[in-house]
Computed example of a mutant assay.
Amino acid sequence: MNIKKEIIKYSKFFEEHGFKLNTSLLRFEKVFPHGKQVIYANITDGDNGKSIEYHLGIRINTVEELIIKQVPMVSFNPEQSITFSQSLNKLRDSSTKKIKSLLKMNDPTNIHSKKDFFLNEGFKWLDQMINPSRLQQEISKLKEDSFESHNLVEKAFKVTALSKLYNPNYYPILRQSFLEKINCNEMTPFTIASFLQFLNYLDNLKSEAA
Rank of each mutant, 00 (worst) to 15 (best):
L162W: 04
K124D: 13
K115Y: 04
P168M: 08
E186F: 12
M105T: 12
Q128I: 11
L152I: 08
E138P: 01
S177P: 01
K206I: 05
E186P: 07
L162P: 05
F117V: 03
N110Y: 15
T188I: 01
K164R: 15
L202A: 01
K158V: 00
S149T: 08
H112Y: 12
M129N: 02
H112D: 15
S149A: 06
L142W: 10
N131G: 02
C184M: 11
S177M: 12
L119H: 00
I111G: 07
N185H: 14
K164W: 05
D127R: 00
N169R: 14
I182H: 06
F198E: 06
F157Y: 11
V159Y: 12
Q197F: 05
S194G: 04
R134T: 14
Q176A: 14
K143F: 01
N169C: 09
H150M: 05
K141E: 06
Q128N: 08
E154Q: 08
L126E: 03
F195C: 04
F198R: 01
N204V: 04
K158I: 00
E154Y: 06
N120A: 10
K141T: 06
L174N: 08
L102R: 14
V159N: 02
L199I: 07
L119T: 01
Y201E: 02
L135P: 00
S177W: 05
Y170S: 13
A156G: 08
K141A: 03
V153E: 07
L102G: 13
F190H: 10
K115E: 15
N200L: 06
H150I: 07
S163L: 12
F147N: 02
Y171V: 11
F178M: 10
N183W: 03
L199A: 02
I130H: 00
L165C: 10
Q128L: 08
S113P: 02
D203Y: 07
L103I: 09
A156S: 11
T109S: 12
S149K: 14
H112R: 13
H150T: 12
S133R: 09
F198K: 01
M105S: 11
T188A: 05
N204R: 12
K206S: 12
L205M: 04
T191A: 15
N131Q: 03
S149C: 06
N167K: 09
F123S: 03
A156N: 02
P172H: 05
K104G: 07
K104P: 00
D127V: 06
Y170G: 08
L179A: 07
H112V: 08
I182L: 15
K155C: 00
Q176N: 13
Q137C: 05
F123D: 01
E186W: 07
S140T: 06
P132E: 00
Q136S: 13
Q197N: 11
S194E: 11
N131R: 03
K155H: 05
P189V: 04
N110T: 02
Q197M: 05
P108H: 11
T191I: 14
S194N: 10
E208A: 13
F118P: 10
P168N: 12
E180Q: 09
L196Y: 04
N204C: 04
L126F: 04
N151I: 10
T191S: 15
K124V: 12
N110V: 05
I139C: 04
T188K: 15
I111N: 15
N167P: 00
K181F: 07
E186V: 07
E186A: 13
M105Q: 12
T160N: 14
S163T: 09
F198L: 06
L152M: 08
K124I: 14
